[in-house]
Simulated scan of single mutants.
Amino acid sequence: MRKLVRGPLLAAAILAGIAGIPLGYAFAQASSPNEIVGVWEAENGSLKFEIFDAGGIYAGRMIFGDRMVEADGKTFKKDTLNPDPKLRSRSLKGIVFVNNLKWDAADRRWEGGSLYDGSSGRTYSGRATLVNGKLELRGYVGTPVLGQTMLMRRVQ
């Protein structure tokens, strides 16, 4: 006989499902702001970046992105789609594409940030959550429900 889940756990799961939020957000595990600092890589290897403390807020610097490099897999593309014409000649290598993530102690996640996608020239709102040692980096337009989450693993 299966045991039914009751109480706060069931309520959180139902609310997460209704809101379209990955269940991990309901059970965030980060307990301090600096837990996000380090080098992270997408589980499929398509993206690698370093998160660093930028004076009380957190930012991320590009190390590798398969959509950011030329066909040789090594040479970084130029930022040709950037809305700022002055930045279109810069290399995407090492750009700071995650900006202004602020620690929210109540929700135990980093919020209020922005994510720049050099492959499209678009900037999205962003937030990050640590769940079971993995980083859930969510980019969205308007509301987090209208977004996409990348699951990252720590490599350093």
Rank of each mutant, 00 (worst) to 15 (best):
R88M: 13
R88G: 11
M68H: 13
G55W: 10
N99I: 09
R109L: 15
R2F: 11
L4N: 13
L146S: 06
D53Q: 01
E70M: 11
S120M: 05
G94T: 07
A71V: 03
G121M: 05
S89N: 14
K48Y: 04
T123Y: 02
G73D: 03
V5I: 15
S125C: 01
M150T: 00
Q156E: 15
W110K: 07
D107K: 15
K77M: 05
V131H: 14
G17P: 00
Y124W: 14
R90H: 07
P8K: 13
D107I: 00
D79T: 12
G94H: 05
G60T: 07
E111Y: 00
G38M: 02
D79N: 14
S46Q: 03
G38A: 09
L10W: 06
D53Y: 04
R90E: 12
K74Y: 09
E43R: 02
R6I: 15
K102L: 07
L92F: 08
T80G: 12
T75Y: 08
K3C: 12
R2N: 05
D104G: 08
A71S: 10
G142D: 06
W103P: 10
R90F: 05
G126Y: 10
D79P: 09
E41H: 05
Q148F: 08
V141P: 02
N100Q: 14
T75R: 07
R2H: 10
G55H: 06
A19W: 01
L137I: 05
A106C: 10
E70Y: 03
M150K: 12
F49W: 13
L135D: 01
R2K: 10
P85Y: 04
S91P: 09
V37I: 14
W40N: 04
R90D: 11
L137Q: 02
Y58G: 07
F49H: 13
P83D: 10
L137R: 02
T123H: 02
F76P: 07
A19Q: 08
K134N: 12
G20T: 01
A12T: 14
Y124Q: 08
W110H: 03
M62F: 06
V39F: 02
G24L: 05
L135M: 15
G24Q: 12
A106V: 13
D84M: 12
V96K: 02
K48S: 09
F27S: 02
R67K: 15
N34V: 15
R138M: 11
D107S: 14
R154S: 05
E41I: 00
T75A: 13
A16R: 06
A106H: 11
V96G: 02
I95D: 11
L137Y: 07
V69F: 07
G126R: 08
L4Y: 14
G139Q: 02
A42S: 10
A106Y: 07
M150A: 12
